[in-house]
Protein backbone atom coordinates (compact mmCIF):
# COMPACT_ATOMS: atom_id res chain seq x y z
CA UNK A 1 0.00 0.00 0.00
CA UNK A 2 1.17 3.51 -0.68
CA UNK A 3 2.02 6.57 1.29
CA UNK A 4 0.05 9.41 -0.22
CA UNK A 5 -0.18 13.15 0.30
CA UNK A 6 -3.26 15.14 -0.64
CA UNK A 7 -2.92 18.90 -0.31
CA UNK A 8 -6.11 20.90 -0.38
CA UNK A 9 -5.57 24.60 -1.09
CA UNK A 10 -9.12 25.40 -2.10
CA UNK A 11 -12.21 25.98 -0.04
CA UNK A 12 -14.02 22.67 -0.29
CA UNK A 13 -17.33 24.50 -0.62
CA UNK A 14 -16.12 26.87 -3.34
CA UNK A 15 -16.36 24.42 -6.19
CA UNK A 16 -18.93 21.75 -6.95
CA UNK A 17 -16.29 19.05 -6.99
CA UNK A 18 -14.83 20.10 -3.63
CA UNK A 19 -16.68 17.56 -1.48
CA UNK A 20 -15.31 14.76 -3.65
CA UNK A 21 -11.85 15.33 -2.20
CA UNK A 22 -12.67 14.00 1.30
CA UNK A 23 -14.44 11.10 -0.39
CA UNK A 24 -11.28 10.35 -2.35
CA UNK A 25 -9.21 10.44 0.83
CA UNK A 26 -11.70 8.18 2.58
CA UNK A 27 -11.63 5.66 -0.26
CA UNK A 28 -7.83 5.67 -0.39
CA UNK A 29 -7.73 4.99 3.35
CA UNK A 30 -10.24 2.18 3.01
CA UNK A 31 -8.01 0.63 0.35
CA UNK A 32 -5.24 0.57 2.94
CA UNK A 33 -3.15 3.54 1.89
CA UNK A 34 -1.46 5.76 4.42
CA UNK A 35 -2.98 9.13 3.55
CA UNK A 36 -2.12 12.61 4.78
CA UNK A 37 -4.59 15.38 3.96
CA UNK A 38 -2.85 18.73 4.39
CA UNK A 39 -5.10 21.79 4.40
CA UNK A 40 -3.52 25.07 3.32
CA UNK A 41 -4.68 28.46 2.01
CA UNK A 42 -8.48 28.41 1.64
CA UNK A 43 -8.43 24.68 2.32
CA UNK A 44 -8.45 25.41 6.04
CA UNK A 45 -11.83 27.20 5.89
CA UNK A 46 -13.77 23.96 6.10
CA UNK A 47 -11.70 22.93 9.11
CA UNK A 48 -12.92 25.76 11.31
CA UNK A 49 -14.67 24.29 14.33
CA UNK A 50 -18.41 24.63 13.78
CA UNK A 51 -18.06 25.38 10.07
CA UNK A 52 -21.25 24.85 8.14
CA UNK A 53 -19.38 23.09 5.35
CA UNK A 54 -20.41 19.75 6.77
CA UNK A 55 -17.12 18.02 6.08
CA UNK A 56 -16.94 15.21 8.63
CA UNK A 57 -13.24 15.41 9.36
CA UNK A 58 -13.66 13.38 12.54
CA UNK A 59 -15.18 10.50 10.59
CA UNK A 60 -12.48 10.89 7.93
CA UNK A 61 -9.84 10.77 10.63
CA UNK A 62 -11.41 7.58 11.95
CA UNK A 63 -10.69 5.93 8.60
CA UNK A 64 -6.98 6.51 9.28
CA UNK A 65 -6.35 9.77 7.42
CA UNK A 66 -3.91 12.21 8.99
CA UNK A 67 -5.61 15.59 8.62
CA UNK A 68 -3.41 18.62 9.18
CA UNK A 69 -4.09 22.35 8.90
CA UNK A 70 -1.43 24.95 8.11
CA UNK A 71 -1.03 27.42 10.97
CA UNK A 72 -0.28 30.46 8.82
CA UNK A 73 -3.36 29.86 6.68
CA UNK A 74 -5.49 29.45 9.82
CA UNK A 75 -4.18 32.61 11.43
CA UNK A 76 -4.72 34.58 8.21
CA UNK A 77 -8.38 33.58 8.32
CA UNK A 78 -8.93 34.05 12.04
CA UNK A 79 -9.32 30.34 12.67
CA UNK A 80 -8.38 29.57 16.25
CA UNK A 81 -10.20 26.31 16.82
CA UNK A 82 -10.14 23.37 14.46
CA UNK A 83 -12.85 20.83 13.81
CA UNK A 84 -12.52 17.46 15.52
CA UNK A 85 -10.20 15.20 13.57
CA UNK A 86 -8.00 18.05 12.31
CA UNK A 87 -4.61 18.71 13.90
CA UNK A 88 -2.67 21.97 13.76
CA UNK A 89 0.44 21.82 11.63
CA UNK A 90 2.80 23.96 9.60
CA UNK A 91 5.02 23.87 6.53
CA UNK A 92 7.96 22.60 8.58
CA UNK A 93 5.90 19.53 9.34
CA UNK A 94 4.88 19.21 5.68
CA UNK A 95 8.49 19.56 4.53
CA UNK A 96 9.56 16.85 6.97
CA UNK A 97 6.92 14.54 5.59
CA UNK A 98 7.90 15.27 1.99
CA UNK A 99 11.54 14.66 2.89
CA UNK A 100 10.54 11.19 4.07
CA UNK A 101 8.92 10.58 0.68
CA UNK A 102 5.46 9.92 -0.67
CA UNK A 103 4.43 7.55 -3.42
CA UNK A 104 2.30 10.30 -4.86
CA UNK A 105 1.34 13.88 -4.15
CA UNK A 106 -1.97 15.34 -5.27
CA UNK A 107 -2.28 19.12 -4.92
CA UNK A 108 -5.86 20.36 -5.24
Amino acid sequence: MGRLLVVDSRDLTEYAKGPSLPLLVEELCRQGHDVTLFLVENGVIAARRGAAAGIAFDALSDTGAHILADDVSCRARGIRELAPGVSPSDLDHLADKIADGFDNILWY
Binding site: M1, R3, S9, D34, V40, E41, N42, I98, G101
Partner: peptide, 27 residues
Protein backbone atom coordinates in the same frame (compact mmCIF):
# COMPACT_ATOMS: atom_id res chain seq x y z
CA UNK B 1 3.45 1.30 4.27
CA UNK B 2 6.49 2.35 6.26
CA UNK B 3 9.05 0.28 4.40
CA UNK B 4 12.49 1.78 4.23
CA UNK B 5 12.47 4.70 1.86
CA UNK B 6 15.26 6.62 0.28
CA UNK B 7 15.24 10.10 1.73
CA UNK B 8 14.09 12.69 -0.77
CA UNK B 9 16.94 14.79 -2.13
CA UNK B 10 15.35 16.55 -5.09
CA UNK B 11 11.85 17.97 -5.53
CA UNK B 12 10.36 19.32 -8.75
CA UNK B 13 7.55 21.86 -8.52
CA UNK B 14 5.40 22.79 -11.51
CA UNK B 15 3.71 26.16 -11.10
CA UNK B 16 1.36 28.07 -13.37
CA UNK B 17 -0.10 30.71 -11.04
CA UNK B 18 1.11 34.29 -11.48
CA UNK B 19 1.48 37.38 -9.36
CA UNK B 20 -1.60 38.66 -7.57
CA UNK B 21 -3.81 35.76 -8.66
CA UNK B 22 -3.90 33.35 -5.75
CA UNK B 23 -1.77 32.35 -2.79
CA UNK B 24 -0.16 29.42 -4.57
CA UNK B 25 3.16 31.15 -5.41
CA UNK B 26 3.58 32.27 -1.81
CA UNK B 27 2.78 28.80 -0.50
Amino acid sequence: VHKARKRVRRVAIVLSTGSYQREAPTT
